[in-house]
């Protein structure tokens, strides 16, 4: 059987230990050799900091609340339906939607790394990548939810989705009371990032 022989060899220790200096040093080396284009790095950063974010996912949820036929299509093949809205790409290749009901609350984690539906929600928040969330979400989701201010009734079960493969999950939170007359745009404004991960609920209109 092959053995993972490279374990003891960690060349990263040859770089400066300070993170900012370490990244700068590696970028400088790779740029000098023509292996990365700094303008491409700027473009990647601009994409994730300014263009892709939870507004994408919120648009999907708002339409699912408003249009039963759309929701049915989402249930059958979310990846195709969401691609048609223009949301696709890296870390969004295989999307499944999971729906909260009065009986079931869904919550998403990746215990092994921090897999996240980037094209729908953008850069993951710090807590999603934290050891505390990765370690605890599967074992004590209700205590974790309480730290987000959410207390679930005993009559509601929790289903935690550990994203161990390339399937990425989008939670469809329950539609808040008193939103019957709202447009999709107004509804989307009620859909928070955390509500689509399952650590929050949709906002109620003011």
């Amino acid at each position: 059987m092959p053995h993972d022989h490279s374990d003891p060899d960690h060349p990263h220790a040859l770089l400066p230990p300070d993170p900012a200096l370490r990244v700068k040093a590696l970028e400088t080396i790779l740029t000098r050799k023509g292996l990365v284009d700094p303008a491409a790095l700027d473009e990647i950063i601009d994409t994730y900091q300014n263009r892709i974010g939870p507004k994408n996912g919120a648009q999907v949820v708002a339409r699912a609340w408003s249009d039963p036929a759309f929701l049915d299509r989402l249930r059958a093949d979310a990846t195709a339906v969401i691609s048609d809205l223009g949301f696709f790409g890296r870390q969004g290749e295989h999307i499944v939607v999971v729906e909260n009901t009065p009986q079931l609350h869904n919550m998403v984690v990746c215990t092994l790394c921090s897999c996240y539906p980037w094209p729908l929600l953008g850069i993951p928040p710090g807590w999603y990548k934290s050891d505390a969330y990765r370690a605890r979400a599967v074992r004590e989701p209700r205590k974790v939810l309480a730290e987000f201010g959410i207390i679930l009734p005993e009559t509601m079960a929790v289903r935690v989705w550990d994203s161990t493969a390339e399937i990425r999950y989008l939670v469809i939170p329950m539609r808040p009371e008193g939103t019957e007359g709202l447009s999709e745009t107004e509804l989307a404004a009620l859909v928070t990032r955390d509500s689509m991960i399952g650590t929050g609920l949709a906002r109620t209109p003011e």
Binding site: Y48, Q49, N50, I52, G53, P54, V109, T111, L112, C113, G122, I123, P124, P125, G126, W127, S130, D131, A132, Y133, R134, A135, R136, V138, R139, V144, E147, F148, G149, D162, T192, R193, D194, T199, G200
Partner: peptide, 21 residues
Amino acid sequence: HDMGGRFGDGAVVPEPQGIPT
């Protein structure tokens, strides 16, 4: 990295909604 279920990591600290900075 295989930390699912581990004890001792403390509280999860929420942050503002939107694109994380």
